[in-house]
């Protein structure tokens, strides 16, 4: 399977605090790649490096074979890096529909002048976008009934779903998901896992996932990377990782005696 994303010897530090030390891994096209590790292991920082929100002190990031280490975050989104956030980052001043439309930003053309004028090109583009979102995203994620609501009035689980919808509107090649089921109940978690699998299988979108829910990780991911205090602990299939002595140690602490 071809590599779609490569992290090559990446280190990151804030002031004197080393957050990531020489991390390397590859993500294959079409797989679900999970990153796990205790709190403070550097999982979210890794996603932020891929997104371009943080710049690494050392190392490189490749996307589809091109070096994107110095590319601005917004340009990376246009290339096909979608993202959902650990602490939901929806725009509370907009409706669900507008939040989703925002995800499609890089794929639209309307500029300042055509936007002020609206009739003609901008109108056509908006209508086409609306149709696409209704068909490919709103139906798929079953959020028809809330599309015109303000996001701030939604329940937590639904907000997470809207965030996923927005990320899908970005038409990503790789979707970076930061704890998609954190704080969800069993039913919501199951729904979300189903959506993630469908996204992978039906749309052939590669998924990089951070999660603490071990059952879900073991169920859906193809490969797992384990981080601890900014270091790469191990990497392998869910089963291999689960049995790895270092992983057990990192999660349960040193066994005495």
């Amino acid at each position: 399977m071809p590599k779609i994303l490569s992290i090559d010897g990446v280190s990151l530090a804030f002031g004197g605090l080393e957050v990531l030390s020489d991390i390397s891994f590859d993500v294959n096209e079409g797989e679900i790649f999970a990153i796990i590790g205790p709190n403070g292991a550097g999982k979210t920082s890794t996603l932020n490096i891929i997104n371009g929100f943080y710049r690494p002190k050392k190392g490189k990031v490749f996307f589809q074979g091109t070096d994107i280490t110095h590319l601005q975050a917004d340009k990376r989104a246009a290339l096909g890096l979608g993202r959902t956030f650990q602490n939901i980052a929806l725009y509370h001043g907009m409706s669900v529909l507008d939040n989703i439309k925002l995800g499609a930003h890089s794929h639209l053309k309307t500029g300042l002048i055509s936007g002020l004028w609206y009739w003609g090109a901008a109108h056509k583009e908006e209508m086409a976008l609306r149709k696409e979102i209704e068909k490919d995203i709103i139906d798929f994620l079953e959020i028809e009934s809330i599309r015109n609501q303000s996001v701030s009035t939604l329940a937590y689980g639904l907000q997470k779903r809207v965030e996923l919808a927005r990320a899908l509107a970005m038409r990503p090649k790789v979707l970076l998901m930061d704890e998609p089921v954190a704080g969800m109940n069993a039913e919501e978690t199951e729904d979300m896992a189903r959506f993630i699998l469908d996204i992978k299988e039906e749309r052939n979108i590669t998924i990089v996932l951070i999660e603490h829910d071990m059952k879900m990780i073991m169920d859906i991911s193809d490969r797992v990377l384990v981080l601890n205090f900014g270091y790469k602990l191990t990497q392998g299939s869910p089963r291999e990782v689960q049995k790895h002595p270092d992983v057990i140690k990192a999660y349960l602490g040193q066994k005495k005696g």
Binding site: K101, L102, H105, G115
Partner: peptide, 19 residues
């Protein structure tokens, strides 16, 4: 249009807007 949505996104959360 996307221009207005981008404005609101910048106001609400400028960091995630960039991503």
């Amino acid at each position: 249009t996307r221009v207005g949505r981008a404005f609101i996104a910048i106001r609400d959360r400028d960091i995630s807007a960039e991503l």
